[in-house]
Amino acid sequence: MGTLSQAVINGLTLGMVYALIALGYTMVYGILGMINFAHGEIYMIGGYAGATFLGLWGGGLSVPIALGLAVLFSILVSSLHGAGLERFAYRPLRNAPALAPLISAIGMSIALQQYVFLTQGTTPKPFPQFFRQDLVAYEAGIKLFGGTLSPLQGLIIIISTLLMIGLSLFVRHSKMGKAMRATAEDRRMAGLVGIDINRVILTTFVIGSALAAVAGVMVSAYISTIFYRDGYLAGLKAFTAAVFGGIGNIPGAMVGGVLLGLIEALGVWATGASDWKDVFSFGVLILVLLFKPRGLLGEVVAEKV
């Protein structure tokens, strides 16, 4: 089992991805107060879209351009799915009792998974090797304290960081970002001042889906395949990250994601029990709920009394 610094590098890479996905959970939660169970599937669909794009149209293009276009394509595909989800599965239930949108979300999660399964087949889809071989070459990586940061890992960390900075600036300073914060706080009043609530919520889903799509492409390049079941576990982890940081809280999701990635990698490094990796993150979720249910940066999550 590699060195400590390798574990930190791997954990940080994974943590960045968790953070990107967690943002989608936390933004939707912030604005609608519901867990979008199907968000993991949006991430998975993004991975498929990227790999499919490269397989079909990547041939004649140079690697950076092909990858860039693949990311854009997967953003488009995932956003359409995310927006469709909001429009058809959640919007009709916006004022229903809390359980209804959750059950609808679970149903959609299953349906999306199956629909990918039916159209994409029973075997994991490989990420075209040609486009990733240079990026994952450890020889080309940077040596850091005895570990190696592969170019792709570096890219994942840089892209994720840029996206998170971009999102923070957007939410803080843009008109739509402010409207999102206003809607998250008081949806009814936001409507009364003339904010088009439906547009704000749709935008939230699109942004969350776009971030998940980028994560999906990066991870499928990183681990070389994408499979229709991948979204479920990634979704569970990312949700844990969102709760860890404090659900509904955007910086919280970022911190929670990175910490969760590090905890997992270091847990495996320290115990050598890679089979139990997923149990670590669940253990984190339980411990967080036990001792700090509002998360590291979050607000009260216990039912109002």
């Binding site: 008109k175 402010k178 206003a182 009364l192 001042v193 003339g194």
Partner: peptide, 26 residues
């Protein structure tokens, strides 16, 4: 036509200035 609802409902996590900007959203 603009309503100032009972209980005021200002956006407490937005700054005063941002609250005013939200008023001008439309």
């Amino acid at each position: 036509v603009n309503l100032v609802p009972e209980g005021r409902h200002i956006f407490s996590r937005l700054t005063v200035e941002e609250n005013l900007e939200m008023g001008a959203f439309s």
